Amino acid sequence: MTDYSQIQEETARLADLSDDLSIPVPTCPGWTLAELVTHVGQTHRWAAHVLRERVQEKIWSREVPSGLAEGQSGDAAWLRSGAADLLETLRVTDPATPVWTWGPDKRASWWPRRMLFELVVHRADAELALGLDPEIPAGTAVDGIEEFLHNLPHAAWVTRPLARLDAEGATIHLHASDTDGEWTITQGPAGKITWSRGHAKSSAAVQGPVSDLLLLLYGRRSPDALTVYGDHDFLTRWLTTAAL
């Protein structure tokens, strides 16, 4: 279960990075920190709405009121306010409550883990935009990799283009160099993937610090910054297509 204090801490870190909202965010092309903060804060409000209203049908984040005027961007205070409301909603919601999610688990317990890694990755975006090297604790990064792989088969906007790679049966192995963590991803039919923990010979393998492996999956690290074995071209195409 996600420690809610991590959500609070990651929100505070992102808010502290958001003094100059005009700074471009290279890992989110076309965005500045203003768009990044607005996206994260709107996502918090979306999750809180789904939980509070026990939403059962698909709803887009843009359908949920943001508290911002038309065309207005969020700032650090607005980000903190939305996170506080989300945290309070999480604390009073039974994790077993049935609600809509885009992942495989249709319960309230799906949302805090998703919100944590939404924050972790976008906090890293902000740090990279400011020329800082993101630091993600190893345990958090391990859980982030498994959360990504757990949800990926249900992200239709990703599995459809993965199917066009014509790579059924190809495999990718991730090997953490600084902690106990190995995963093998297998490309299945119709773009769906399966994955397992442990070592296996694969079409392509990547080795590096576990925080970099997490950022690699999200398209925030280039495989060129890590140690790659096997089919580098396939790995690059797969990562470009699969990044959430």
Rank of each mutant, 00 (worst) to 15 (best):
residue 52 R to P: 00
residue 57 E to G: 03
residue 211 S to G: 04
residue 46 W to K: 02
residue 142 V to S: 05
residue 231 D to F: 08
residue 200 A to S: 13
residue 234 F to V: 09
residue 179 T to V: 08
residue 118 E to R: 00
residue 205 A to T: 12
residue 7 I to G: 00
residue 211 S to C: 03
residue 20 D to H: 11
residue 2 T to W: 00
residue 50 V to P: 03
residue 158 V to T: 06
residue 109 S to P: 01
residue 70 E to T: 15
residue 32 T to M: 03
residue 140 T to W: 00
residue 95 P to S: 10
residue 32 T to K: 11
residue 121 V to R: 02
residue 109 S to Y: 04
residue 104 P to M: 00
residue 136 I to Q: 01
residue 39 H to S: 07
residue 63 E to W: 07
residue 9 E to G: 01
residue 215 L to F: 03
residue 153 P to A: 08
residue 202 S to V: 08
residue 129 A to R: 12
residue 237 R to I: 02
residue 129 A to I: 10
residue 113 R to Q: 10
residue 195 W to I: 09
residue 165 L to W: 02
residue 166 D to N: 15
residue 185 I to C: 07
residue 133 D to R: 15
residue 225 A to H: 14
residue 154 H to G: 01
residue 5 S to D: 12
residue 191 G to R: 03
residue 183 W to S: 10
residue 150 H to W: 14
residue 189 P to K: 10
residue 29 P to Y: 11
residue 216 L to C: 02
residue 158 V to M: 03
residue 27 T to I: 08
residue 169 G to H: 15
residue 153 P to Q: 09
residue 199 H to F: 04
residue 171 T to C: 14
residue 65 P to S: 13
residue 5 S to W: 04
residue 3 D to Q: 13
residue 111 W to S: 00
residue 15 A to Q: 05
residue 103 G to F: 09
residue 14 L to A: 02
residue 53 E to K: 05
residue 221 R to Y: 01
residue 206 V to N: 05
residue 243 A to K: 04
residue 22 S to F: 05
residue 33 L to Y: 00
residue 16 D to R: 04
residue 232 H to Y: 13
residue 223 P to N: 12
residue 1 M to S: 11
residue 95 P to R: 08
residue 45 R to K: 12
residue 140 T to D: 04
residue 180 D to R: 12
residue 138 A to N: 02
residue 24 P to E: 09
residue 61 S to E: 09
residue 137 P to T: 01
residue 13 R to Q: 11
residue 6 Q to L: 08
residue 133 D to A: 15
residue 110 W to A: 01
residue 166 D to H: 15
residue 38 T to C: 01
residue 115 M to A: 00
residue 211 S to A: 10
residue 66 S to G: 15
residue 6 Q to R: 11
residue 139 G to N: 07
residue 55 V to S: 05
residue 30 G to L: 03
residue 102 W to Y: 15
residue 205 A to Y: 06
residue 26 P to F: 11
residue 227 T to G: 09
residue 77 A to M: 08
residue 228 V to C: 10
residue 192 K to C: 06
residue 114 R to L: 01
residue 117 F to G: 06
residue 17 L to A: 07
residue 231 D to A: 12
residue 14 L to H: 04
residue 216 L to V: 05
residue 233 D to R: 15
residue 184 T to G: 02
residue 13 R to F: 00
residue 100 W to I: 13
residue 129 A to Y: 10
residue 108 A to F: 01
residue 184 T to K: 11
residue 31 W to Y: 05
residue 140 T to A: 01
residue 69 A to D: 15
residue 138 A to H: 11
residue 169 G to R: 15
residue 47 A to K: 02
residue 7 I to R: 05
residue 127 E to P: 14
residue 124 A to Q: 13
residue 54 R to E: 09
residue 176 A to I: 03
residue 53 E to N: 07
residue 48 A to P: 06
residue 239 L to W: 03
residue 171 T to N: 14
residue 134 P to N: 09
residue 51 L to R: 07
residue 229 Y to D: 14
residue 2 T to I: 12
residue 31 W to K: 04
residue 3 D to V: 05
residue 233 D to P: 05
residue 42 Q to M: 06
residue 183 W to N: 06
residue 23 I to V: 15
residue 234 F to P: 09
residue 198 G to L: 03
residue 77 A to C: 09
residue 136 I to H: 03
residue 236 T to L: 10
residue 212 D to A: 07
residue 143 D to H: 08
residue 35 E to H: 06
residue 158 V to G: 00
residue 91 R to H: 15
residue 152 L to D: 00
residue 48 A to R: 06
